[in-house]
Simulated scan of single mutants.
Amino acid sequence: MPETAPTPPRTALVRGLALKCPACGKGALYRAYLKPVDVCACCGAPLGQVPSEDGPAWLTVLMLAPFLVAVTFFVSMSDLPLWITLPGAAITVTGAVMLALPRVKAGWIAVLWSMGKIGSSQE
């Protein structure tokens, strides 16, 4: 059964960044890398119904942009050959995005949950 009292946005965000249910803070938020559980195993919150399509990806790129620009700058200024720097930069950038995206998406889901945005419509 879903929690009846609304979760404050800050509390929900902290729980989401810990990859836990934003409603109770106990159940897991994901069942796979970026797939939210349909319902929380602890409190029954319908986390699979919180819309999170393109927002997390957009926000991840926006947050990582300064880091990505710095990596590009250092690759272009490096005296190392391109066959070393370009794969290194690609691995670094891909790794940063792969590490950040689950937490950004979890935070996104948590904030939308705290706002009561449940269902397929974002109205």
Rank of each mutant, 00 (worst) to 15 (best):
A5G: 06
P22L: 03
G27Q: 01
V97A: 00
S52C: 08
P81Y: 03
P81A: 04
V50W: 04
C21I: 01
P9E: 13
A100Y: 15
A100M: 08
G16F: 00
S114R: 03
D38F: 10
P66G: 07
A106V: 04
S76E: 15
A32M: 03
L82W: 14
F73R: 13
P87T: 06
F67D: 01
W58E: 14
L99V: 11
M98H: 13
G95H: 05
K20N: 08
V71I: 09
E53L: 14
L47C: 07
L13Q: 01
L80A: 13
M63Q: 05
A32H: 12
W83I: 03
E123G: 12
A18K: 09
D79S: 10
V37I: 03
D79Y: 15
G27F: 06
V37C: 02
P36I: 04
L82K: 10
W108H: 09
D54C: 09
S114A: 08
G16M: 00
L82N: 11
L62P: 12
G119M: 06
L47S: 06
M63I: 09
A41D: 10
G44C: 07
P81D: 02
R31K: 10
D79A: 08
D38Q: 10
A100W: 12
M98R: 11
V69N: 00
S114H: 03
W58D: 14
L47D: 07
P9D: 10
L17M: 06
L59D: 09
A12Q: 02
D38M: 06
A5V: 14
W58A: 14
M77C: 12
I109D: 00
A96P: 10
G107L: 00
K26G: 04
Y30T: 10
T4P: 09
C21N: 02
C24G: 02
G44H: 07
A18E: 06
A57E: 11
R31N: 13
V93M: 10
T60C: 00
C43F: 05
V37N: 07
F67V: 14
M77E: 12
P66V: 14
G88T: 06
L17V: 14
W83S: 15
W108P: 07
I109W: 00
E3H: 12
A106K: 01
E3G: 08
S78E: 03
R10E: 12
L34V: 05
V71C: 02
R15E: 04
L62A: 08
A90G: 15
A100S: 08
M77D: 12
W58P: 15
G107D: 02
Q49T: 13
